[in-house]
Design a protein around this nucleic acid. Structure first.
Length: 355
DNA sequence: GTAGGGTTAG
C-alpha cells in the first residue's frame, strides 16, 4: 500500500486496504500517512475518523500523521481533538508526536499554544527548535524568532538549512535587511551550509522589498546557477512592481514570458505595475495580449472550519458562503481527484452555512 | 510496513 501511495496510485492502495479483513493500526496508519503524502488531507482525516469508528486504537504514528493533515487544512478544532486524544492515550512524552502537535498549532495560527507545547517538550531537538522559529517568523513575531534562534545556539543545537530558511524568511517579512544578510553570510561562513534556491529566494525577496532592486538583480547575475530561475525572477519582479521600477520590471517580465509563455501571473503583475504608474495604454495592451493568448486567472479556492465542519469557498464569495459556490467547490474537489471518490465531508448546508 | 521542521510570487 505504502508503495502504491509513493507511486501516486492512491486508488490501488485503497483497493488493497479494503481487501484487508482484520485491519490493525499499521494498515490504518499507512492509509493516513499515504493520503497525507498524496496531498489528500480531507481523506486522511476521513480515514482517521473511520479508524476511530472501527474502534482500532490509535498510536503515536496515527496521531502524528493525522496532525499533519490538520495542519494542512488549518483545522484547529480537529487538531485540538487530536491533542485531547494524545493526552488520553498518555503519549505526551513522544518527541515526534509532540513535534507534530506543535507544528499543527503553529500552522493553524495558534502560535502561543504552539509555544506552550514547545515549553513542555521533554527534549528539544533541531526539528522542534526550527518549527518554533518558523512559527514565530511566519506570524510576524521576528524578534521572538531571533531570540529563540539565539537560545537554540546557546543550547548547542546546530542549525541546518531549514532553520536558516526560517530565519531568512522571518527577516524578510519584517524588513530586517541587514540582519537577513548577516544570517545569510553566517550560514555560509560559520555553518558551512551552501545556499540553495530557496535561501536565495528569501534573500532576493528581502533585498528587493527594501527597494535595492539592482543589488538583488546583481546577485542573480553573479550566480550562473540561479540566474534564470523562474521562481527567483518572479520574486524580483514583484519587488519591481512594489517599487514601480518599470525598466528592470519590464526586462524581467520579458524573460519570464519567454520562459513560461502560458503563465498568466506575469501578465497580471505587469498590468498591475503599469496601473500603479497610471500607464493605462500599456496596461490595456498587456490585458489584451493576455486575452489573445487565452490566458485566464486561476480561480481561488479555500475552506474554513465552522462548527466542526470544513466548508470550501471560492474567491468570488465576498461576504458569506453561497450555496452555488459550495456546490461548485464540491465539483471542483471531486473533479480534481483522479479516483472520483467523494470528499469525506458532509455538507450540511441548510443548518450550518449561515451560522 | 506507517511518524514531526521548508522560502518566494501572483
Amino acid at each position: 500500500m505504502d508503495l502504491y501511495f509513493k507511486c501516486g496510485k492512491v486508488g490501488s492502495a485503497e483497493t488493497i486496504f479494503k481487501l484487508i479483513p482484520k485491519k490493525e493500526a499499521v494498515s490504518w496508519n499507512v492509509m493516513i500517512s499515504g493520503y497525507v503524502t498524496a496531498g489528500k488531507f480531507f481523506e486522511a482525516y476521513g480515514i482517521f475518523s473511520d479508524m476511530r469508528e472501527a474502534h482500532v486504537e490509535a498510536d503515536a504514528i496515527t496521531f502524528t500523521s493525522v496532525l499533519a493533515a490538520c495542519s494542512q487544512l488549518a483545522a484547529l478544532e480537529k487538531g485540538k481533538d487530536v491533542h485531547k486524544l494524545i493526552i488520553e492515550r498518555k503519549l505526551e512524552d513522544g518527541e515526534v508526536v509532540m513535534g507534530a502537535l506543535l507544528d499543527m498549532y503553529a500552522k493553524c495560527g495558534a502560535v502561543d499554544e504552539a509555544f506552550g507545547i514547545f515549553r513542555i517538550l521533554p527534549e528539544r531537538d533541531l526539528v522542534s527548535w526550527t518549527s518554533m522559529i518558523t512559527a514565530y517568523g511566519s506570524h510576524g513575531r521576528v524578534h521572538e524568532a531571533l531570540k529563540l534562534f539565539a537560545d537554540m545556539l546557546q543550547s548547542n543545537v546546530k542549525p541546518d538549512r531549514v532553520t536558516f530558511l526560517a530565519i531568512l524568511s522571518a527577516c524578510s517579512h519584517a524588513g530586517l535587511v541587514d540582519e537577513g544578510c548577516y544570517y545569510f553570510n553566517e550560514m555560509i561562513n560559520v555553518y558551512g551550509i551552501i545556499p540553495r534556491v530557496e535561501h536565495y529566494s528569501c534573500l532576493i525577496d528581502l533585498i528587493g522589498r527594501a527597494g535595492r532592486l539592482n543589488e538583488a538583480y546583481e546577485i542573480l547575475q553573479r550566480n550562473p546557477a540561479i540566474t534564470d530561475d523562474v521562481g527567483l525572477l518572479s520574486t524580483l519582479f514583484s519587488a519591481c512592481r512594489l517599487h514601480r521600477n518599470l525598466d528592470l520590471g519590464f526586462r524581467i517580465a520579458r524573460t519570464l514570458i519567454e520562459k513560461n509563455p502560458d503563465d498568466s501571473s506575469t501578465y497580471i503583475t505587469l498590468s498591475h505595475m503599469y496601473a500603479s504608474v497610471q500607464k493605462w495604454d500599456e496596461m490595456r495592451t498587456v490585458r489584451s495580449q493576455m486575452k489573445k493568448l487565452g490566458l485566464k486567472k486561476n480561480p481561488g479556492c479555500s475552506w474554513t472550519e465552522i462548527n466542526q465542519k470544513i466548508y470550501p469557498f471560492f474567491s468570488e464569495d465576498n461576504s458569506r458562503l453561497h450555496l452555488e459556490s459550495v456546490n461548485k467547490c464540491i465539483l471542483y474537489l471531486t473533479s480534481h481527484m483522479e479516483d472520483e471518490s467523494i470528499p469525506f465531508m458532509h455538507f450540511d448546508i441548510e443548518a450550518q452555512i449561515y451560522s
